[in-house]
Simulated scan of single mutants.
Amino acid sequence: MEDMPYAEWLGFARASWSRYGMPESVVDLGCGTGSLSIPLARSGFHVYGIDLSADMLAIARSKWDESPQASVRPRVGTIRWLQQDMRSWELAEPVDTVISFCDCLNYLTEKEDIEAAFQATFAALRSGGSFLFDMHPPKQLIRYAEEQPFVLDERDIAYIWTCDFEESRCQIEHNLTIFARDRNAKFDRFEETHLQRAYDPDWIEAALRRAGFSTVDRFADFELKAASSSSERLFFAAIK
């Protein structure tokens, strides 16, 4: 994950907030190990990091606890870590904005799960609040299938990454075999499987409107520019 464009996701969020309204409270939905939640809190936002994985949240908490203290920075916000399912998450008070980046929503592989996540998010936002997220379009999963396998071979880590693509559902299974060198210079082997599904962007927009969002804008590739058939990553901004 070291090459993931976290700075670009944060840049897209800030550009969007400049357009739709600057928030005070932010939900990072599918926050993982906090790579977006923590810099947002460091810059003064009040953040809720929500994820289904207890292991991910444990790492996120550790990273936040080890981050620079408030005395080092003039403005430091807060983080509350919550283990919840993005299809049914909720908070006691409405929030200003929800973000869900790094194609988190592609991991919901049934349409009813996407609809449920949109409905839960709409319910948790204040009036005028924004929901910002990105998704792989269908062409990106097709490209993965066509270009696999992927291989990494470095001194301390290596992997073999293969893909199985189900065309009828536009669904892909990523299978990774990872070899990581331990402190004794021996390699441990790990197996991971990731299942993702891509959806027609028009259907995603319609589902957002069914959930109640009054404005839905579609962008691409980390910029506030209109999406096109050549876009590699789609971004949506939905306003309650």
Rank of each mutant, 00 (worst) to 15 (best):
V47I: 09
S62Y: 03
R218Q: 13
V27H: 00
T121G: 06
R126L: 10
R210H: 11
D153T: 12
S130T: 10
D182G: 12
F236C: 00
K111L: 15
Q84P: 07
Q84R: 00
G30S: 11
I178G: 12
D85E: 10
L132C: 06
I157W: 06
F12L: 06
R233K: 15
Y48F: 15
Y20C: 11
E232D: 13
A123N: 13
A120Y: 01
A92D: 15
D103S: 09
F12K: 00
I114S: 03
V27K: 02
A185K: 13
A158P: 08
A15R: 15
Y159Q: 02
R80S: 13
I59A: 13
Y159V: 04
G32N: 03
G32V: 02
E90V: 04
L29G: 01
A15H: 12
D188F: 05
D188E: 12
D55R: 12
A145V: 08
C170N: 11
A237Y: 02
A58R: 12
W81G: 05
R155P: 08
A211M: 11
P39E: 03
Q148H: 10
E205R: 13
A92Y: 08
L91T: 00
D153N: 14
V95A: 00
E146P: 05
R61Q: 15
L234A: 01
Q119D: 06
D188A: 11
Q69S: 15
A117G: 04
F219K: 02
S228P: 05
L224Y: 05
G11H: 14
E93G: 09
F133K: 06
T162N: 10
H174D: 05
L176D: 03
R183M: 12
P39H: 10
L208A: 07
E232H: 10
S127Q: 13
S130P: 07
P68Y: 11
L91I: 00
L36W: 07
C163N: 15
D96N: 06
R75E: 14
G128R: 01
S25D: 04
G77R: 13
S214Y: 07
I50M: 03
K225H: 09
A58K: 12
D156Q: 09
K186E: 14
M86R: 00
F101I: 00
S230D: 15
A185T: 09
V151G: 06
Y20M: 06
R126F: 04
W9I: 00
D182A: 09
L40H: 08
H174N: 12
D113Y: 07
S168I: 09
V47N: 03
F190P: 14
S37G: 02
R169D: 14
A220S: 14
N175C: 11
S53N: 03
L29Q: 01
L29I: 01
L57K: 05
R210S: 11
F219T: 02
S100K: 01
L52A: 15
H194W: 12
L234G: 01
K186N: 14
A70G: 07
F187C: 05
G129L: 04
A116C: 04
D65Y: 05
L108G: 06
S62R: 14
E8H: 13
M56T: 06
S67K: 08
I114P: 09
T121L: 06
R209G: 02
A124D: 01
I178W: 03
D51G: 05
S71W: 14
Q171S: 12
F219V: 06
W81K: 05
A116W: 02
T215W: 12
G212N: 10
K240H: 12
G128N: 05
D202Q: 14
A92C: 10
M4I: 09
D85P: 10
A158D: 03
L141V: 06
F45C: 08
D156F: 11
